[in-house]
């Protein structure tokens, strides 16, 4: 089973959704809400091995291959971080490893467009960059099996 529509289509949908909100408060409230839809990582997988190291909040990410597509699950102790992972999962979940491997930070134009630019910086401890890297590492690992 793969996601219907391209990565860019998924991003455009996210942008449309966020553009509806006019101020920061509504945007962040929506992001926090999105976090609640995140496919949660199984409790027994919340281990140090699946922890993306950052110094401010903790993010656990896991991926498995089902019918040739990658399925992500994650969690975080920060609600905003959880919202951000949830966005990434929404865009990249249920795709072929080959598709995920190709994605670079620059391809994720939706993040900047929805006003979350500050989360893009590599120096930021909860860098989306680290999450994306981890997702791509899974994709590389599964690419031989897909």
């Amino acid at each position: 089973m793969t996601q219907v529509g391209t990565i860019d289509q998924a991003q455009d949908e996210v942008i449309d959704e966020f553009l509806f909100f006019k101020d920061w408060q509504d945007r962040y409230e929506h992001l926090i809400e999105l976090g609640k839809d995140l496919p949660l990582i199984a409790p027994e997988r919340k281990t140090d091995d699946n922890l993306i190291r950052g110094c401010q909040s903790r993010v656990w990410l896991f991926a498995e291959l089902k019918d040739g597509s990658i399925h992500f699950s994650a969690d975080s102790d920060s609600m905003i971080t959880k919202g951000i992972v949830s966005l990434l999962v929404r865009i990249l979940d249920m795709r072929r490893p080959a598709e995920v491997i190709k994605i670079s930070l620059a391809d994720l134009y939706s993040i900047e467009r929805i006003g979350l630019r500050e989360h893009l910086f590599t120096t930021r401890s909860n860098g989306l960059v680290a999450m994306l890297d981890q997702m791509k590492r899974y994709a590389v690992a599964y690419s031989t099996q897909a």
């Binding site: 408060q25 401010q56 909040s57 102790d77 920060s78 971080t81």
Partner: peptide
């Protein structure tokens, strides 16, 4: 979480 609070304070 302090990270969430810091982010939302920054927005203000």
């Amino acid at each position: 979480h302090h990270y969430d609070l810091g982010t939302l304070l920054d927005q203000q």
